[in-house]
Design a protein around this nucleic acid. Structure first.
Length: 728
RNA sequence: GGGCGCUUAGCUCAGCUGGUUAGAGCGACUCGUUUACACCGAGUAGGCCGGGGGUUCGAAUCCCUCAGCGCCCACCA
């Protein structure tokens, strides 16, 4: 090792080393010279191809690489499975936005060409992501990299759909669903976000009652009134059909008018007696709760808002208005006709699309739903039984809470980018006319659920059947990630996995769904441990996100300080709580890499070409004894901490040992001991031993600098890479 | 409305199955260029551990309460 330069320069080492590692084939567990019995498998939480990786991904992948590298060095057959997610709505949205800037509208392009554009995007960003991961130094098996829309993966997705359908868990229904008018698609409950909104609570005269609503524009879709069954105030009205005076949809917009309607009063537990006047209008078509009330009491479904968020013909003279506009006009007219009693300021949470932020409009729509009862039970049992451990345990709560109150999952989406559902329609069968909200359509619509397009249409016997244009919720396919697209032999060898490391925001969206999917299709849970780590926030405690402009590309740090320093800085801070990002930790990492480099230069210069056995040296002096004891202690604790997912603690202890015990104290003493013939050889032996073993312990955290030094290390029986050395 | 978490040095955080002078990184200050490293070494300063109450021989650590901050879930229209 040339003693010339003082400072360690990651630029001259990292890229080269990564190439060598990759070329060695050791990222692929099939090539590891290890026992065939002990597996350690990590399925990478697949980054979305919506853009590039940020610090959160860097944290996530640093953690995963630590457990992988640590176990690889402990003789496990380690697989770190990489990939990316097509991320349906999210990716479609960003590409739409990009095209819009170029003046292109997706409808002008048409479905096929638009999807082509998304593929171009995917290829570009997918590659950037893989490059970022390589630069970070993560040791995943690139020979097995998958994308959720790969051919084999897509096949497994279809298979799952057909399986659920054949099992009776997947059904088509006409129901009120969450709808994003901007994206033009249905959304699941988990794809909503809530934004606090200052709005008004309107008290409207409704026959003999006054009731409170925030959405007067939906009133033309009201098909009932509901009260709590225990509410004595309205007892006598329950079950009665009343004639009430309300706003007319007829005539001119300039002349507000009233007309008489008939409406039924029902009693339902969902009604809160304390809120407003304790009586509520039921609009089954435009409110999810109302839909349920409507279903329970057989109330008709009247749609007054369409897929674009505008009032339908049923709203008469208000038709064509956007809901916000209609609300304003209707409130005005209610006032004019004396139907509005009062309005109050009211803060409430507005549901918005988690991708584009547009307000959600519940509307009735024909969709595919997955029955969740039995699957949720499966996922609950996996955790309750301890077969899957969630760490920290606190996160079991949101997991079980969600599963215990689950509703059926709307899995179909009306976008273009995604897995088109394997449903085939007869072209000649007239679509069944929906008369009400009843969801048991049977198969009067003329469709077939099957992997392949049926050769002959079973309905008309003549047509070329047409595939449904709907695609699947992107989470339907990512739920299959631990096994979809893997070869038979890989499934045998690498399923189930060991540890899943992820952030808390997708515990239900993804983790729960992987657990029941794995159990459903593979017969056992996809992993034993789930580690939920903190989120990286900005220095002032805000969420790091690209859309807020607060995100940071880890490459910025890697280029400036090196991957080791970046990983160090992240892990150093990632103690379990959310992290208010502090760049100085990376400075510390850079200094530490340099410290390791220089201490190694010193040791290697000391020993020259001399070879020392790899065994534990006999301590000859007090200093020898102290350093050996300290080493043994940190070796045990750091491995234990890694297994307990206490990466930051392990790193702090290793840092402390290496810098202070080894460098500050022992190295200085060793200089004296090496000058004394009586202890010269034993001291060098000790130096080499402690250094080499420390490099092994440090390698999972700072893989590059440790490997670079190891490559220059003279000792017998050396392996080709530190990466596959044995951490005994 | 429910759940979870946080409040410790100037900054970012450890410590919290209770026990000698409360730690780290970064920053500040003082010395130091003896042949690994100035991306260094030896030191120093800086904290009534958010407020109040309680349990205990003893609490940053356990309990209660108040205040502030953050996140998640939820069918108060």
């Amino acid at each position: 090792m040339e003693p010339i330069s003082g400072a360690y320069d990651p630029k001259t080492t990292e890229a080269e080393l990564y190439k060598k590692w990759e070329a060695s084939g050791y990222f692929n567990p099939d090539n590891l010279p290890v026992s065939q019995t002990k597996n350690y498998v990590v399925y990478m939480p697949l980054p979305n191809v919506t853009g590039t990786l940020h610090m959160g991904h860097a944290l996530n992948n640093s953690f995963q690489d630590i457990v992988i590298r640590s176990h690889r060095m402990r003789g496990y057959r380690t697989l770190y499975l990489p990939g990316t997610d097509h991320a349906g709505i999210a990716t479609q949205f960003v590409v739409e936005k990009k095209l819009k800037k170029e003046g292109i509208n997706k409808f002008d392009l048409g479905r096929e060409k638009f999807i082509g554009k998304i593929w171009e995007w995917k290829n570009e960003y997918g590659n950037i992501i893989y490059d970022q991961l390589r630069k970070l130094g993560v040791s995943c098996d690139w020979s097995r990299v998958r994308f959720t829309m790969d051919e084999n993966y897509a096949k497994d997705v279809k298979k799952a759909f057909v399986h659920y359908h054949d099992k009776g868990l997947l059904y088509r229904g006409y129901r009120t669903v969450n709808w994003c008018p901007r994206c033009g698609t249905s959304l699941s409950d988990l794809e909503l976000e809530y934004k606090e909104e200052q709005s008004k609570l309107y008290y409207i005269h409704y026959g003999p009652f006054t009731l409170a609503t925030t959405r007067p524009e939906t009133k033309f879709g009201d098909t009932g009134l509901a009260v709590n069954p225990k509410d004595g105030r309205y007892k006598d009205y329950v079950g009665k059909e009343l004639e009430i005076e309300s706003l007319s949809t007829e005539g001119s917009l300039d002349v507000p008018a009233k007309k008489k309607n008939k409406i039924i009063v029902v009693a339902d537990d969902a009604v809160d007696m304390e809120f407003g006047t304790g009586i509520v209008k039921v609009t089954p078509a435009h409110d999810l709760v109302d839909f349920e009330i409507g279903t329970r009491h057989n109330l008709p479904l009247v749609q007054v808002i369409d897929e674009t968020g505008r009032m339908t013909e049923r709203a008469g003279k208000y038709a064509g208005m956007k809901t916000a506009e209609a609300r304003e006009k209707i409130v005005e007219d209610l006032k004019a006709t004396g139907l509005l009693e009062k309005e109050e300021e009211y803060a409430h949470n507005l549901a918005v699309c988690y991708r584009c932020g547009h307000a959600i409009e519940p509307i009735p729509s024909k969709q595919w739903f997955l029955k969740m009862d039995s699957l949720a039970k499966t996922a609950l049992e996996s955790v309750k039984s301890g077969r899957v451990k969630i760490n920290p345990e606190n996160f079991e709560k949101p997991y079980t809470a969600w599963l215990e109150n689950i509703k059926d999952w709307t899995v179909s989406r009306q976008i273009w980018w995604g897995h088109q559902i394997p449903v085939w329609f007869c072209k000649n069968q007239k679509e069944f006319e929906i008369k009400n909200q009843k969801s048991n359509l049977k198969n009067e619509e003329g469709y077939v659920v099957s992997m392949e397009k049926p050769e002959k249409c079973p309905f008309c016997k003549t047509c070329e059947m047409e595939q449904s244009p709907d695609v699947l919720d992107t989470w339907f396919s990512s739920a299959l990630w631990p096994f979809a697209g893997l070869s038979e032999s890989d499934l045998k060898k690498y399923y189930p996995g060991t540890t899943l490391i992820t952030a808390r925001d997708i515990i239900n969206l993804w983790v729960a769904r992987m657990i029941y999917s794995g159990t459903e299709f593979m017969g056992q849970e996809p992993f034993r441990n789930v580690l939920i780590h903190g989120t990286i926030l900005t220095k002032d405690g805000k969420r790091m996100s690209k859309s807020l402009g607060t995100g940071i590309d880890p490459l910025k740090y890697i280029e400036q300080f090196g991957a080791d320093a970046t990983r160090f800085g992240i892990v150093w801070q990632a103690t379990g709580q959310d992290i208010r990002w502090d760049e100085t930790a990376i400075t510390a990492g850079k200094k530490f890499a340099n410290k390791i480099w220089n201490a190694s230069r010193f040791v290697l210069t000391q020993i020259g070409d001399e070879l020392f056995p790899t065994n534990i040296p006999e301590p000859k002096t007090e200093a020898d004894k102290i350093i050996l004891e300290a080493f043994t202690k940190v070796k045990e604790s750091s491995v234990r901490d890694i297994d307990a997912f206490e990466f930051s603690k392990a790193l702090h202890d290793l840092y402390d040992f290496f810098w202070h015990d080894f460098c500050d104290v022992y190295l200085e003493t060793a200089k004296l001991q090496a000058a004394d013939d009586a202890t010269k050889t034993s001291t060098k032996h000790m130096l080499v031993f402690i250094l080499r073993e420390s490099l092994k312990l440090l390698h999972p955290f700072v893989p590059f600098v440790t490997e670079e030094i190891y490559q220059r290390f003279p000792f017998p029986e050396k392996k080709v890479f530190l990466m596959v050395e044995t951490l005994v």
